[in-house]
Nucleic acid binder design. Structure first.
Length: 338
DNA sequence: AAGATTTGACCGTT
DNA sequence: AACGGTCAAATCTT
């Protein structure tokens, strides 16, 4: 994002600029909160800051979406994803909750297909259990693909308006892989998930997890092998396609989001952050130059859809050096395993 | 009963 | 028109 500077801004641009600046400042406060894990900062809490950051970014996005700005440097689809408009467009006909008899349902009313706004793609040897609650809403046979593609959306789409979705495609290789495409960011606050970790200011050493009681041990060394997601509470996949070799009992409080070395899916994970979604310019965040993947829309919830993006968010927001020796990023935003 | 999944139809994009 | 993403009634599971 090249900043022309506020002096050259039109009115709309000025508003966007102001909102982004405010968002940055709030994020900086949040960064401070998170860095100092004592969590005692007087009246300011992460829970306070997060909605404010969200608001700032949403304001900026709304300004951008108003169309007054001409060229928008960011991915408009990405911006759109943070606005509730997509759901609203649909809610007109789906809001009444499918009580219409099928016979009247010939016209379902115009829903608008969301533009592709990929966030990340992961390919794993086993289906990803990323700790989020997903609900399958479709499955399609894909041309030239041996296996169908499954479509999932966040369980909290309706209660929290979380628009995160993912698609899972089993690839046809000698050893079948599961290509998971995460689309959009989680804006939900799943109480069972990692936001607590962020919000509560767990010490950075907590990155080195040990689940003695649950027979799961995660160390920094484990992280170097790529993140393998944690068990989700529900099964999301057809048992025929995948077996989930984990016990739901391991997901209790704060262990979500953290990789386990034993869930059989860490070996060959590859992760991509698509370049066009490279979020904030490093000039905005005062974080380390090599890890400027702070997420504009990644927002407060930190319920990013994958561990890797989660970690990148943390990296950029915290300037967290703990992961710097764990991951490398190349110029295209591809996460490289060390 | 409530929530999740299945699956054919609908609809936007190319 | 084909393709693929989404909807939503039917069905299944808990």
């Amino acid at each position: 994002m090249e900043s022309p500077g506020p002096e050259n801004f039109s009115g709309g641009q000025k508003k966007v600029f102001d909102e982004l600046v405010q968002g940055r400042e709030l994020a900086a406060q949040l960064q401070f909160l998170l860095r100092d894990s004592t969590g005692d900062h007087g009246s300011v809490t992460a829970e306070d800051l997060v909605p404010r950051i969200m608001k700032s970014f949403n304001q900026a996005i709304a300004a951008l979406s108003s169309g007054e700005l001409g060229e928008v440097s960011g991915d408009p689809a990405t911006l759109e994803s943070d606005l509730p408009c997509y759901d609203r467009q649909r809610s007109e006909d789906s809001g009444e909750k499918r009580k219409k008899p099928a016979s009247i349902d010939h016209r379902r009313g115009g829903y608008k297909r969301r533009k592709m706004l990929e966030t990340s793609i992961r390919t794993t040897s086993t289906p990803i259990e990323d700790g989020y609650s997903w609900r399958k809403y479709g499955q399609k046979e894909i041309l030239n693909a041996k296996y169908p593609r499954s479509y999932f959306r966040c369980t909290h789409r309706h209660d929290q308006g979380c628009l995160a979705t993912k698609q899972v495609q089993k690839t046809e290789e000698e050893t079948p892989m599961y290509r998971t495409t995460y689309i959009g960011q989680h804006t939900c606050r799943d109480v069972l998930k990692a936001p607590q970790f962020v919000m509560d200011g767990i010490p950075r050493d907590a990155f080195l997890f040990s689940f003695d009681s649950s027979n799961i041990t995660t160390t920094k060394q484990d992280l170097t092998h790529g993140f393998s997601p944690l068990p989700s509470i529900k099964a999301e996949y057809n048992p025929e396609e995948a077996t989930t070799p984990l016990t739901a009992t391991t997901t209790t409080t704060i262990d979500h989001h953290y990789p386990t070395a034993h869930d059989n899916q860490s070996s060959s994970d590859e992760y991509f952050l698509l370049p066009d979604l490279k979020p904030l310019d490093s000039s905005i965040l005062p974080s380390t130059p090599g890890s400027d993947y702070g997420d504009v829309s990644g927002v407060y919830s930190c319920t990013t859809s994958s561990h890797s993006s989660f970690d990148m968010d943390i990296n950029s927001i915290l300037g967290c050096v703990d992961f710097d020796d764990v991951f490398n990023f190349d110029n295209d935003g591809v996460l490289l395993e060390v």
